[in-house]
Nucleic acid binder design. Structure first.
Lengths: 141, 141
DNA sequence: GACACATACATGCATATACATCTATCATAA
DNA sequence: TTATGATAGATGTATATGCATGTATGTGTC
């Protein structure tokens, strides 16, 4: 029967495996995959906030705050106060952050291609479709 | 986001969302989803080892060792030495572990059904197919 | 302007994840 | 039978994850 298999475990297993695949490739940059995702999102938005990154990355506010810490500590990300709203912190890439992202981006891109070759485009399409469904049906909080 | 979507981020987002879905339902049992997966695997195998659980759950040995800790501490799992191989520890459910699993199992089952209704059988099938592909192509270590 | 409420971000706690490395035990060959 | 290498599991360190809660700031009402 269909519920012999746990959908949650299945997704978590997949997530662990794909993470190790990317982690292995990105290791030469010193970045973890979660950190790369943050740099990529900040590179895209240029100037952003904790709040905005939360919705892009589908991360809890407290998780994101902590995940930013190593990147701020190592000065890949800069923080600046918002000119009008004292609660906000404007997050952007530092020069070394930009440089690091630009070094990592082609490695990430090649990893994407290699994964696609390895598991097939049907499967990679399936990953994107699933994420879309999940964010739409479970991602409103 | 400069053309592409990151497959890794997509899967990790989905994993976080589905985990929260199950976590919310299972919270009344006091179990985290990872702990439920362990109890379920041990209930299935009856007597098992760290090593065997690693391959069922697709978890690193060190991660599994640590994930077992709270369940052993709370005495839901029992450890016994292997009669022939002193390196092995036999893991099994205690009485309270069995009781807890049997209390959690129907909640998990209903969660599976609810998720299937919510996102559709195509998507849940897709999750299982994806996990199968990932374990087959990336899961040999 | 003072108070109530909402919003943005941080902290305490607990679990999750895995690499590098360590210890203990087993298996095997000289 | 001892040296050697393999295997099972544990520990040090670091990041990841999120709930409950705390602090600071902004907004609206009177």
């Amino acid at each position: 029967m269909s519920t012999d298999y746990c959908f949650n475990l299945a997704l978590r297993k997949s997530s662990r495996l794909i993470t190790q695949f990317y982690e292995d490739r990105l290791s030469e940059t010193g970045l973890k995959v979660g950190q790369f995702s943050i740099l990529r999102a900040v590179n895209y938005t240029k100037e952003t906030t904790n709040k905005e990154l939360q919705s892009i990355l589908v991360l809890d506010q407290t998780t994101l705050t902590r995940n930013l810490k190593p990147l701020i500590r190592d000065e890949y990300l800069k923080l600046a106060p918002h000119p009008e709203d004292g609660r906000l912190k404007i997050i952007s890439l530092s020069e070394s952050g930009k440089a690091l992202y630009e070094r990592a981006e082609p490695i990430w891109r090649k990893t994407q291609e290699d994964l696609q070759k390895k598991i097939g485009t049907n499967e990679t399409d399936s990953i994107l479709a699933l994420a879309d469904t999940f964010v739409k049906t479970l991602g409103d909080k």
